[in-house]
Design a protein around this nucleic acid. Structure first.
Lengths: 346, 346
DNA sequence: TAACATAAGAAAATCGTTTTACCTAAGATA
DNA sequence: TATCTTAGGTAAAACGATTTTCTTATGTTA
């Protein structure tokens, strides 16, 4: 690996001069500049990453912390962030906390355990002196553990920073629930059941709110018995679908595609045809939604866009290109419906 | 951030001594060692990453190069690699070459373009002085571009290094094709069609070989008309299934689950019941295989295990813990079948 | 002409580690 | 007693860049 020193020798100039050329400093004659650049190109010089990092404050590295890469939403977001950073000449350092404990098939719950996972991971990033940290939240539950005072900028992606301490990029759950319900109402449905997520979950709550808002707007009475809470997994979709069918609903709004698949399972077993006898809508636009039969009408969460938007805003933040009046604490993206074949008219 | 110097001052010893303590060097009295460690703990000292990197040859960083994270097989492998590295106190630096060009919806084909993507990405990793490079190949096509002389160890994951220049971790395609065919034969099928992958693909070829080997073993005549080549996508499964049905086969071995889903599409449209009128087997154990109806019998590629095995072997390699007779150029993992509901007996 | 300003560049300090070479006192050996 | 070891430690060099300070020749102004 060729160093500044060697280039300086080849050009008969000092190390300082070479450095000045490479950093576009003024005190160099045109002639010298040309010669140095030529030698630099010839030798294929690459600045030593560590030496540079030691001197400069900026490393052009962005740390990405994720709770678990196996969460459905995490990978596409991370990919989009990485792609944008790459295009803008930033390196990324991905730290996977793996909060999902495979051996116990459960998420970390114990407060102390969680802290013990958070601390070292964050410390590590800071010791590498990243220029900023992007926290991709999957589970809202953990976000509150992320509240240290950092000497670098921080952004929360996919979930709202409850303390409003950090800027966030999220999507509009309320509109999602509203759109789906309006759509079903427009198709003539009046008895619309919901297979919701876990009750304390913020997504669940906001989507429920959108659901009720739509009903209210159309003067359709809200029946609390038609909301059943699942656990986001396929199995709970099966169980809750059975209950809702017995309630006599004509359409079911499932708060993710996995539970919608569970609902399909129940309906198939009982010879109830989706899209004809009953209508189903999902949420997420998970890959599987295209493989269910009939293909599932759902609400697309624009993961890639969320990642890209977050990265774009964040890099501006790091580079101080955001004026005080452009500053946004929450950037909210909208989800649009993907109409497929699982909804019929009544 | 606290430095060695400050700790030295607090302890009334030299910087050297502190460094010696931290690096388990011998020339320190037990008393001094104790005092230093105490202060280190108190202050929460973390060695400066850059200063350390500059001095040591090893950075405890492993570079992972992937062709495209969007390839189905790539993410789980990368995750497993990262997890293992993490557990062994190595950091990973993921470089996504993004060879899949979204705007043109096509892969890079032009030789020059590919080179222009490979070069800078690899150069970057080397400038950070990673301790080694793991190349996670998705597309066998690109592997040949990866043949530079590196000053660090290299391993190829998921595909065979054709030049045999680097060690590889792969899985047994031949056995996969063989097992599936044997299974179908055991179920009484004699007319077994194949929806293969692209003809020049190494996976296609090896699986075909396994298929023929099984037929031969059971004295079943091989009919070349029953092998149709698809392009690994859903649509081609649809098209080829039609042809095979017209050939009168009773079972179809699809070389990935996506094409199997395409076959399902055709069969469903034509009221042919999968698992009864015709049997289908896939390959990959893609998530979607559990959501097709009936659930797809397929062959599981152990992505996580591939990643883990590769990382384990590679770290040993880096740390020179592999004796000359333990050295393996190819580590081949086996795939096992996942029996679900898409195969019936004749 | 003397004092000063400026352009172009060089020397040296610096970042925080690790490593090499050197030092000193105490005990061992010839 | 003179020399050699050794344990325990220190000072200084090195890694490769950036940054600050210093130098010199030339041109400008009073």
């Amino acid at each position: 690996m060729v160093t500044l020193k060697e280039i300086a020798q080849l050009c008969n100039v000092s190390i300082t001069t070479v450095s000045n050329v490479l950093n576009d400093k003024p005190k160099v004659s045109e002639e010298t500049r040309k010669k140095v650049l030529e030698v630099v190109k010839e030798t294929g010089y690459q600045p030593n990453f560590f030496a540079q990092g030691m001197r400069k404050q900026k490393t052009r590295m962005i740390g990405i912390i994720v709770e678990d890469l196996d969460i459905f939403s995490t990978s596409p977001i991370v990919e989009a962030i990485m792609a944008y950073c790459d295009d803008n000449n930033y390196r990324t350092l991905l730290v996977n906390m793996r909060l999902y404990d495979k051996w116990q098939d459960t998420w970390y719950n114990n407060e102390k355990d969680i802290q013990s996972v958070f601390q070292p991971n964050i410390q590590e990033l800071l010791s590498i002196k990243v220029d900023g940290i992007m926290y991709v939240a999957g589970h809202c539950r953990y976000i509150n553990y992320f509240k240290k005072d950092f000497e670098v900028p921080v952004i929360i992606v996919y979930a709202l920073s409850t303390s409003a301490q950090f800027p966030s990029v999220i999507f509009d759950d309320d509109k999602g629930g509203y759109d789906i319900t309006k759509y079903l109402l427009a198709k003539g449905h009046r008895k619309i059941g919901v297979i919701a997520g876990t009750p304390d979950n913020i997504h669940t709550q906001k989507r429920c709110f959108g659901y009720q808002r739509a009903l209210f707007e159309e003067n359709v009475l809200f029946n609390p018995n038609w909301i059943k809470h699942g656990d986001w997994e396929r199995g709970s979709g099966y169980i809750k679908a059975e209950k809702l069918v017995k309630e006599g609903v004509t359409a079911i709004f499932c708060m993710n595609d996995l539970m919608a698949a569970g609902a399909y399972d129940y309906l198939y077993e009982n010879n109830i045809t989706v899209g004809k006898d009953i209508s189903i809508v999902g949420y997420d636009n998970n890959q599987i939604s295209e493989y269910l039969r009939p293909q599932l009408t759902t609400n697309n969460i624009p993961m890639k866009e969320i990642g890209r938007t977050a990265a774009e805003y964040f890099i501006k933040l790091i580079e101080n290109e955001i004026g005080p009046n452009e500053r946004q604490d929450v950037i909210k993206l909208t989800c649009d419906m993907v109409i497929r074949d699982s909804v019929g008219s009544v």
